[in-house]
């Protein structure tokens, strides 16, 4: 299998290699990187390019590892017992499979995305060690053993809010998505806005990288913010001359700067550079 850039997603060579290795060796692939560098998109594109379903398990601070396996709905069962339903005699009617279960029993090999694993409690990854390694688990209520028909392709993303335990890391392949350089970024933009003028793109990228280089920014704008910003520039029909001539804040700055202090910082720096020029 060969995973490469598609018509709407640009993938760097080393990332393609990482994906290929993870798929071949059937290991979970852990992706880290700045927000907005396309970690989640990768899983979506991978599923599309392989033509297999994507199962997405979005992790929240309240997520438990057990929810990924299955949940036992005791309340419905109690209710049904009052109503005298026949279903009540079989506990299996009240076991709801979670994402891992669905992935294990899928008819073809799916892509399982465990998104933002660092959001959960710090013991969460430890609770999934065996399940991800052996790709099987035991259902206590029914005594059933669920094991994977095909080992799913597991993609895990993390924003580095919490450190992950060593034992968990040892079982994964790890790739850090670097922020793309200007050349790659131009390619990415081209994929999203094919009819953007060259001049505008060039000026916009210059402005964008200048902003990223500013020290002390609370939140550096990332690829997804650049793309949003360009969309706005296109909609508002801003020409590259206007963009170059704009002193102070760039037009539509709200798409790039998400923090009041950052806006003030950029404004101040622009003001200072203007004063130096005049």
């Amino acid at each position: 299998m060969q995973f490469s850039s598609t018509s709407n997603y640009i993938v760097a060579d080393e990332l393609a290699l990482a994906v290929q290795a993870a798929v071949t060796l059937e290991k979970p692939l852990l992706l880290k990187g700045e927000p907005g560098t396309g970690k989640t998109r990768l899983a979506e594109e991978l599923a599309t390019s392989l033509g297999v379903p994507l199962l997405r398990w979005q992790i929240k601070s309240t997520s438990k590892a057990q929810q990924g396996l299955y949940e036992y709905d005791a309340v419905s069962r109690l209710r049904d017992s009052q109503l005298g339903s026949d279903k009540v005699h079989d506990i299996a009617n009240y076991i709801k499979p979670g994402k891992l279960w669905q992935a294990f029993t899928a008819p073809e090999r799916p892509v399982l995305l465990i998104d933002e694993i660092d959001k959960a409690d710090i013991e969460f990854p430890n609770d999934l060690l065996h399940e991800l390694d052996q790709m099987e688990f035991h259902v206590y209520e029914t005594g059933e053993q669920v094991s994977a028909k095909h080992r799913p392709i597991v993609v895990i993303t993390s924003n580095n809010e919490k450190e992950l335990p060593d034992a968990f890391l040892r079982r994964c392949f790890f790739h850090y998505i670097n922020f793309p350089d200007a050349e790659t970024l131009a390619k990415i933009v081209h994929v999203h806005h094919p009819d953007i003028q060259r001049d505008l793109l060039k000026t916009a990228l210059e402005v964008f990288f200048d902003v990223r280089k500013l020290p002390n920014l609370k939140k550096k704008p990332s690829t997804s913010e650049l793309i949003d910003w360009l969309k706005l520039l296109l909609v508002e029909d801003v020409s590259h001359k206007q963009l170059q001539a704009s002193d102070g804040l760039m037009p539509m700055f709200g798409a790039l700067l998400k923090n009041e202090q950052d806006v003030q910082l950029v404004e101040k720096l622009a003001f200072m550079s203007r004063r130096r020029e005049s």
Binding site: D13, E14, L17, A18, A21, A22, L30, K32, D166, L169, R170, C172, F173, F174, H175, Y176
Partner: peptide
């Protein structure tokens, strides 16, 4: 070069160790 990336992928689990 590909070997470098592969080795890093499998052996290193934190970007601070790169």
């Amino acid at each position: 070069e590909a070997f470098y990336y592969l080795a890093r992928l499998t052996l290193v689990k934190d970007e601070s160790q790169f």
